Simulated scan of single mutants.
Amino acid sequence: MQSFSRDEDLHLEKQTFSYKDKAPGGCYVMFESLPSFYDGGHPSVVSKPFAASVKKDQTLASGEGVIYYLVTNKLYTSVQDVDAMVEFADRGNQLFIAAVDMDSILISRLYTKISETSAGSIFEKPHAEEHFVNRSLSPDSVYARDSIRDGRYFTLLDTARTTILGTDRLHRANFIRINVGKGQVFLLLQPSILTNYFLLYKQNLGLLEKTAAYTYGYAAVYWDEFYKYNQYPHSGDFSQWSVLMRYPALRWALWLMVALLALYAIFESKRRQRIIPDKVMLTNNSLEFVEALGQLYYQQHDNANLAKKITLQWLEFVRTRYYLNTNILSDEFIRRLSHKAGLPLADIEAIIDSIHFVQLADKITDAYLKEFYSKIQAFYLNTK
């Protein structure tokens, strides 16, 4: 893991908040840490506006217990996006937003107000602190880092449904939770504390653990990668071409590519090239070897040996695909495999029962071998 010097000044223009960025201003550490908090794989990455994503993703559209992380410098939304976000939370999900500047459309919809300027003075040495209000987290609930300027703070809250979770070094609320229907919206005005630069300093990674502890359920976890690159107000319409034409660098690159293709078509259209014969595809001898070996065991009626080979191959698949320990095939193993593979619990239990029988049996009939093979094949075909 990468570390950074104490004197390095982390400016907003250097922060990308990208889950791939291992530089000080990236969120690589946070993204890689989230699976450990929710006992699952990495979050699903979203690269389109919220309203457009809801239309195409069934889990976002109708799921419950979903957590959506959005970390950016400036958050600009459309009315359609805000409506979709509120409906998403109201259904029983959680929306976690960390941003310095938040769109007034979203803020007014949540009945809150934010200060126009940051909490500290520009003449002071940059030093950010985050205090958790929950007294049960003391005494290790304060996290700090130099070279990060203070963020903004909330000046108006709907106290009937809002809980203050954290404050800055001047004890002004900058991290809140708002109840929306069955779900919740988290607003954090200091996204810099979620960057690699802050989290890798001393014990600051504990801040991320305490922040995630406020969330509940983990039917699915999503990570937004759209709004951090959308630093200007936009309409509800969205297309791939609109993204390309929004940024000058991408716009010039697109027109340059079109010009080069046009020149290539003009000068190369007169060139003739003889037909290149098709190259014979190489056969996969390893697959043929495995198939031949299986046929050999089957023809010799060595069913017990063949069933054990099938078992070893299946256990290896589970280890490499789902990162599960297969040394002990317990009820907990069955439950976790059923959750990760997306298959009914009864199907996994049937396979494990068959494996226990195969490991203890000296002889196996042809009928039982075919039934066992059918269960394994059904798992391969239906697993996610």
Rank of each mutant, 00 (worst) to 15 (best):
L208E: 11
Y247C: 02
D278K: 15
A265C: 01
V185A: 04
G40R: 08
E316K: 14
G92N: 04
D140G: 05
R91E: 08
S115Q: 11
D237V: 09
V180N: 07
E129V: 09
Y222H: 15
T155K: 08
H356T: 02
L254Y: 14
F37R: 06
S47E: 12
I275P: 08
Y222C: 09
V29Y: 09
N327W: 08
L261P: 10
V29Q: 08
E225I: 06
R172T: 05
N284F: 14
F31L: 07
Y297L: 07
S47C: 12
I276A: 10
A213K: 01
Y69M: 05
H339S: 14
S138E: 14
V180W: 03
V290C: 06
E64Q: 09
V86M: 15
T159H: 13
E332C: 00
L343D: 09
L337I: 01
R145V: 03
N382V: 00
V29G: 01
G151V: 01
A220T: 12
L324P: 01
R161T: 14
W223H: 00
E124W: 15
E124N: 15
L293D: 10
P233I: 00
D81A: 03
L110Q: 00
D140Q: 10
R251C: 08
E371R: 06
K309S: 06
Q273K: 11
K202G: 00
G294C: 08
E32Y: 13
Y153K: 04
T59N: 03
E288I: 06
S242Q: 06
F289L: 11
A259F: 04
V45Q: 12
R251P: 06
I105L: 15
I105T: 15
Y111A: 15
F154C: 14
L34N: 02
N230C: 10
Y197R: 11
E288L: 10
H42C: 07
L12S: 12
L315H: 09
P49N: 13
V45S: 11
F333E: 02
A160V: 03
T320F: 04
R172D: 08
